[in-house]
Nucleic acid binder design. Structure first.
Length: 266
DNA sequence: CGGAATGCGATG
DNA sequence: CATCGCATTCCG
């Protein structure tokens, strides 16, 4: 017990922030980088990102912030029928990925949750996808209240929508602006200021979309409080979301907010 | 209320 | 290391 406490204090002394550039603009060298797959849910490719394709989701990993730039996946109603389960949830590094990664030590005693971007509850359709969701390439430091609260409620809504619409396309990730929370751990894992999530729906003859932005704190509001258009989210994050849509469709879908519950039986 | 789902941390 | 218990939240 005393040893553990001393260990944590030791780690905290190691994690003195030097100067943390938040932009992620530092080029990280040497990693094989694959182009972004041509899928509906994937954002346009940007510089300084390393694309990793897992069985259940695609990650744009940032070797500077040690968190993903974004995580994207299609979620189907069929996938939610299969419920692979494990008593333990063992977070680990992606063994295939070269270069720096976060580790458990960075998060332990940090006061921040290991927050999934692609939720493990969305990846239960196979043992492989389940464990891949536990790689640190899919994890961000996240406020505990948010992780179990409003962010979790949004994830539950996405599963409800996937069941109702048959499939949805999801992209989410951290947002860095003021970098007010600094970093955690010896590896200096960057703590996001906020998180975004955008969801694309198949509707008759076309698509609808919603976007959310939640600060990385213990706020509690109705989900509608965090709502914004995909256009607004793109301006905030500098990302081009759902670029696989043809231009007129993309423009129409991203300028208005779809109401996914409007047509449901509730 | 019971079952999912997000986790953390104590216990052998 | 695995297992268990705890807290919170939401849904049917």
């Amino acid at each position: 017990m005393h040893y553990l406490l001393a260990f944590c204090l030791f780690l905290s002394t190691l994690s003195i922030p030097l100067f943390s550039t938040c932009s992620g603009a530092v080029p990280d060298g040497g990693q094989d980088s694959v182009s972004v797959p041509d899928r509906l849910e994937c954002p346009a490719h940007a510089t300084d990102e390393h694309i990793v394709e897992y069985s259940g989701f695609v990650v744009s990993y940032n070797h500077h912030t040690l968190v993903p730039n974004w995580v994207a996946y299609e979620l189907t109603a069929d996938e939610l029928q299969v419920r692979y389960n494990s008593k333990s949830s063992n977070f680990s590094r992606d063994p295939q990925l070269k270069g720096p990664q976060a580790s458990r030590e960075d998060y332990s005693c940090s006061g921040w949750d290991k927050g999934h971007m692609a939720p493990k509850a969305d990846m239960r359709w196979s043992e492989r996808s389940y464990w891949e969701s536990h790689y640190f390439t899919n994890i961000c430091p996240q406020n505990h209240q948010l992780n179990g609260g409003d962010w979790n409620r949004l994830e539950q809504a996405v599963r409800r929508w996937a069941k109702h619409y048959g499939r949805v396309w999801v992209v989410c990730g951290p947002v860095f602006d003021s970098c007010r929370y600094g970093t955690i751990g010896p590896a200096q894992v960057h703590i996001p200021d906020a998180f975004f999530k955008a969801v694309l729906f198949p509707v008759e003859g076309g698509y609808g979309a919603v976007a959310y932005l939640m600060p990385n704190g213990g706020t509690h509001h109705p989900l509608s409080h965090y709502l914004l258009t995909v256009d607004q989210l793109e301006q905030l994050t500098g990302k081009d979301l759902f670029p696989a849509l043809d231009d007129p469709t993309e423009a129409a879908v991203e300028s208005v907010t779809f109401n996914p519950d409007q047509k449901s039986y509730r």
